[in-house]
Write a protein that binds this DNA or RNA. Structure first.
Lengths: 333, 333
DNA sequence: GTACATTTGAAAAAATATTTTCATAAACAC
DNA sequence: GTGTTTATGAAAATATTTTTTCAAATGTAC
């Protein structure tokens, strides 16, 4: 399996599949998110300034505006106040601080900026290539990005919520949950373990940083009522396969996240989740795998309303270490 | 900033706005001019009706709105009155005729339609397996997958190869390269470090599994000729910000991978790479971040033909531990 | 610690925007 | 033509939004 082989199935991007007429037309919408484009506009820059220089609430306001530029024209000062958690009075003053005559003018300026963002914009391929014309390497880079987008989309589209539900109830009922991955996959396994922690009384991430030999020991006592979630991608680490085989012989339920039905894990698993890992340069692009991991965690969280609370509780305990300690989520990153 | 806030910009999908034929396609939402897209929206349809059925002024109003949809959210009834040449009273009645509670609601509806148009949102919803129908949770799940796909695409589209090239040469010339991330981002930092290893003589992953206190020590001697690559996403870990500030004071070059220009890292970094992290359930979806990391590594690899060889050499040394020891890539997963 | 400056929210005041009223004008039926 | 219906704008009435005021809280300098 070489690079060109891996890329080829995805070579034809949705982009190039677009009807011809669309190609030169005034297709809408910017490169990147509206948020990123907005930040580049003059108004965005002013807001960024205020985000640095201003007072606590001014920073909060600037941040909200930068993150939700599309809403600005549509909402009034009161609603914005409640969304940003400051008073309308402060917002009124903020508008002046930003150099406007009042909130109305700020809002008008925002609307203008957004208008400007609606310039006809080329799509991924052309926009990237244009600035990278000379070096042949740029094409590879674009291919890599394209491949990543496709991997993620394929994974998302082929993910079966039913299977996810089954796996979630499996995890919920398990005596102990094990996560396993080697090499790069070990980090995905760790992320999975970290996210799973609030919901699993007993949870073991088999490979804690490099300790390949110790890993087997951690898995030694896996049994019938346990679940092993294993991740492996090309080039598949033999240890992952071997340990999974072992867990299988011990009667554990196996959930595998891997790239293809042709993966050596496919035969060993009771439940399979696929995350394509095509990449022109790297042996595996793991972004889709991360999407699948996050989907699994999401499914687990929403499977039970209590879980969300539980996750929040955990968060509160570490809130002090976060820049923004005000919201109720569980993931620090 | 909470989950609903984060999700909300994407809440209203353009799905329902699209002509039937497009529903199952993978096209971007907004193709054509904003005006045309707006005309296809439910609100646009209503206006078209009124344009045919209504009285003289109603036709004039409907036409103006259809031709200038982008202005609607920004202007009040009086200004619209003067632009369309009718009185405010007529506009007020027009809004009712269109089925709204009043002008305010009409304007809000217009803002919503436009918001939907500005989201280059792809419609996975229909393409994701239909079994999702029953449970309410499935929608959240689908939203999560949609968000991930959009994050990844946004990241890909807004990634500037030039910036990447600059960063690559920075890394190549650096005396020592540091990678830094806390919480979930620590795993991304580890992946980055693992991938960078073959190309960096001196490389330090500051946070090796949880050791928060030791981390500062590892960064202590960072200096002018060094590069710090830091990753942080909501909810931003204060430690990441603090250590980055420290590195900055020591004169190190800072490369930040974060979610938004409003991120606290944005002000500290010399070079910024954006990876949107929107997610309806999790506080951050990190798949796009992984795409950016992989793009950076790819760029580094292809920047110099020798690098590929170098990566291969390393691989050969560990080939014995891989299921398929025949190819020439560097990543075991 | 105290004094001073800054920031903030609640509520009053002002400004603005929207709706309703009402008189008139236009359109239509006959 | 007249009577009737419908549509309209001006202005009053109402509702909403925005700004200002002011007292309290917070932060800062000494």
């Amino acid at each position: 399996m070489n690079a060109s082989n891996r890329l080829s199935p995805n070579k034809r991007l949705a982009l190039t599949d677009m009807p011809e007429k669309a190609k030169n037309s005034t297709d809408l919408v910017a490169v990147g998110t509206p948020e990123l484009t907005f930040a580049r506009s003059p108004l965005g820059q002013r807001l960024l300034d205020l985000q640095n220089s201003g007072s606590r609430s001014n920073r909060a306001i600037a941040e909200y505006l930068l993150r939700n530029p599309l809403r600005i024209p549509a909402i009034g000062i009161e609603e914005l106040a409640s969304r940003t958690g400051v008073s309308a009075a402060t917002l009124s003053r903020f508008a002046r601080a930003a150099g406007f005559d009042g909130y109305a003018e700020l809002r008008a300026a925002a609307a203008d900026s957004l208008l400007g963002m609606l310039q006809p914009v080329e799509k991924l391929r052309s926009s990237i290539q244009s600035s990278a014309g000379k070096s042949g390497g740029a094409n590879v880079l674009v291919s890599g990005l394209e491949a990543s987008v496709n991997n993620v989309r394929s994974a998302a589209e082929s993910l079966d919520p039913k299977a996810l539900t089954t796996i979630v109830s499996l995890i919920s009922r398990a005596n102990e949950v094990y996560t396993l991955g080697f090499g790069l996959s070990s980090h995905l396994a760790s992320i999975l373990a970290l996210d799973l922690q609030p919901f699993c009384a007993r949870l073991t991430n088999v490979v804690e940083f490099g300790g390949t030999e110790v890993a087997a020991g951690r898995l030694l006592n896996i049994g019938k009522r346990d679940v092993l979630i294993v991740l492996s991608f090309p080039r598949y680490a033999t240890d992952a396969i071997r340990l999974t085989s072992y867990a299988r012989t011990r009667g554990a339920k196996i959930v595998a996240i891997t790239d293809s039905p042709a993966s050596p894990l496919a035969q060993l698993a009771d439940y399979l989740l696929f995350a394509p890992a095509n990449h022109p340069v790297l042996s595996s692009g793991l972004s889709a795998a991360l999407v699948v991991v996050e989907a699994l965690v999401s499914a687990l969280m929403i499977s039970n309303p209590d879980n969300v609370k539980q996750a929040s509780k955990l968060t509160d305990a570490i809130a002090a270490y976060l820049v923004d300690g005000t919201d109720t989520h569980s993931r620090k990153s």
